[in-house]
């Protein structure tokens, strides 16, 4: 465990909490993609299947339970809460699950470290996490005016990924024999997806203006 990895995990948790609190406090999920949230839930469930038999550390186990729990709550709010579900922007959140899930499923069958069910599901979760933000980015693009909390949510998520890259660089430099190509490449692609958003987020912040994405 190094500071970059720890910062990454905390930022990830923070991003989820920002979103959950926003929904809870405003009773609105306007601008939030349910597709992205459900994809993240699928990511967490397929990756953390080993929760019960593959104990690594209390730290990891607590985070796994918290990520699954908080993301489930967000999905529950958006689907079931009597007021929140009315604010869901389903007309703009039209990204097809299949476009993301199918290629990731095929890729995880073709490229994996070991050919067994749990290894393949784990690999699938790595690939799916890389692209799960796409429905959210498309929704932001469509609605143009991004409210502050939604913008901060996406920014914190991107920052979490950036810190994971620093963590890999640090581990590569300090741990002999450490290499993780599958995770690195997926992670680089995932972080790359945020670059465009980052650019506009920083611009808006510098000019202390409301975040607006171009068409």
């Amino acid at each position: 465990m190094n500071l970059f990895r720890f910062a990454g995990d905390i930022l990830h948790l923070l991003s989820i909490l920002v979103l959950l609190l926003k929904i809870h406090a405003t009773k609105s999920c306007a601008g939030i993609s349910l597709k992205t949230q459900e994809l993240y839930l699928a990511v967490f469930i397929t990756r953390y299947l080993d929760l019960f038999w593959n104990f690594h550390s209390l730290y990891n186990s607590v985070f796994k339970v918290v990520y699954i729990g908080t993301t489930s709550m967000i999905v529950w709010y958006m689907r079931r809460h009597r007021n929140v579900k009315l604010t869901y922007d389903r007309d703009h959140d039209t990204f097809r699950y299949l476009f993301l899930v199918a290629p990731c499923a095929v890729l995880s069958l073709l490229i994996n470290a070991r050919y067994n069910l749990f290894e393949i599901l784990w690999t699938f979760s790595i690939y799916l996490e890389a692209v799960a933000i796409l429905p959210q980015l498309v929704l932001l693009q469509r609605t143009k005016n991004v409210d502050n909390l939604t913008g901060n949510y996406v920014f914190l998520l991107g920052l979490y990924r950036a810190f994971y890259i620093l963590n890999w660089v640090y581990r590569f430099a300090t741990e002999p024999g450490y290499s993780a190509w599958l995770v690195w490449i997926s992670g680089l692609i995932q972080t790359g997806l945020y670059l465009d958003f980052f650019y506009y987020y920083v611009q808006a912040w510098k000019q202390s203006k409301k975040l607006q994405l171009p068409s």
Partner: peptide, 10 residues
């Protein structure tokens, strides 16, 4: 061993 090494991250 490699895949165990990967799985110490979240």
């Amino acid at each position: 061993a490699q895949s165990n090494l990967l799985k110490d991250e979240l």
